[in-house]
Design a protein around this nucleic acid. Structure first.
Lengths: 201, 201
DNA sequence: CACATGCCTTACCATATGGTAAGTAGTAAA
DNA sequence: TTTACTACTTACCATATGGTAAGGCATGTG
């Protein structure tokens, strides 16, 4: 991949995350690099293809990260925690991607519905698998395990995209404090969920 | 408020939730009612004002719901659960609003940052207040309480906006099962959080 | 040298968009 | 009957947008 092509992808990822698909014109992206939009169209045939390339790269990075975590072999509950902490760390390191993926969840039901293409699919499958390996969860239905796991993933994703707003409300210091408190809190919740098993109906 | 004005607001809310501010033109909204966009501009001077009116109505409804729950006087942990269940119910009843508010969280940091205008502000304040009234949380920092509460709110909001995607993946039946499992799970997590207090550092 | 190929530009275009201006039909008060 | 107001409409416009067409320029390659 050429240098410009890569640079266009970077800019596009950042702008799409910030303002969404409709909020960004291809001219906006090209301008950022001092190019014309036709230069962009030379590398990526249409706006849709550019957006697709952005998603594809994210998806690729995501699967790699999953594999990395999946390869360690502790007990299920520890790996469960590791998975979620990996997710959380990635969110803190690269919050723009969470923005973009959240937008994708809102906008593109059609694409998201194709389970194969959905970036979270393998991740959730791994998590549910790990949870049902835990003693208290061995008899839980997959729907129960999924609900438990999705609750945790959702908490992290929502917190991540809230960063700008929370910073605005609490100031940088306030946000920092909450952010510091969030990670241990999630860990503790994971432990509690693992330890207590599915809710008794 | 005139009949048409109300109808325009309804359509706008639904479309903005579905496609976002930039994804909807005022002509789209007006067309839905067989009107011209100038009819819309007659009632709401600009597109931005229309969007503002949509948010304002949601915010109003939201505060009313908060007051309703705040008026019952059980013990803190039960009211905490009530608050979150109210939130969850509202989400299930009216998922489009969650979409719209999530978009607002992503798009409009400036508006969201004005704490006064942020729809969740009072809600979160109530929740944090209730949590710190619980015995185990009396010594927790406000950042800790906020992190704990935000985790729960985020879980619910994220689940709500995931509905279309989850339905697409698991089918209507699968989504129904997960959705049924989600509410008890959240309740249990609330209990666990309240009971265990902030994580020991 | 001729010629192709990759990267980019200027020109151009059809369409959509938010918004203004001006006017029309109906209704109600003076 | 005039006046005024509400709820619209048709006409129009400047701007932005995604995309096409065609060409320039550099770097190889035969």
């Amino acid at each position: 991949m050429s240098n410009t092509k890569q640079a266009l992808l970077d800019v596009a990822e950042s702008l799409f995350a910030e303002r969404g698909f409709y909020g960004v014109s291809i001219a906006n992206v090209a301008d950022e690099l001092g190019l014309t939009k036709q230069a962009l169209l030379h590398h990526y045939g249409t706006k849709g293809q550019l957006y697709g390339a952005v998603l594809e790269r994210i998806s690729r990075d995501f699967s790699n990260a999953i594999k990395r975590v999946a390869d360690n072999d502790q007990d299920p509950s520890a790996r469960l925690a590791d998975f979620l902490i990996e997710l959380f760390q990635r969110s803190l390191d690269n919050p723009t991607r969470d923005l973009l993926l959240m937008r994708e969840l809102l906008d593109n039901h059609e694409r998201a519905k194709q389970a194969d293409a959905w970036y979270l699919r393998d991740f959730l499958k791994s998590l549910v698998g790990l949870l049902t390996e835990c003693p208290k969860w061995s008899d839980a239905s997959s729907a129960q395990a999924f609900a438990a796991v999705y609750q945790l993933v959702g908490a992290v994703a929502y917190f991540s995209v809230s960063a700008p707003t929370l910073t605005g409300i609490g100031g940088k210091l306030g946000y920092r404090q909450v952010s510091d408190a969030f990670m241990p809190q999630i860990k503790q919740t994971v432990s509690a969920v693992v330890a207590s098993g599915p809710p008794s109906s």
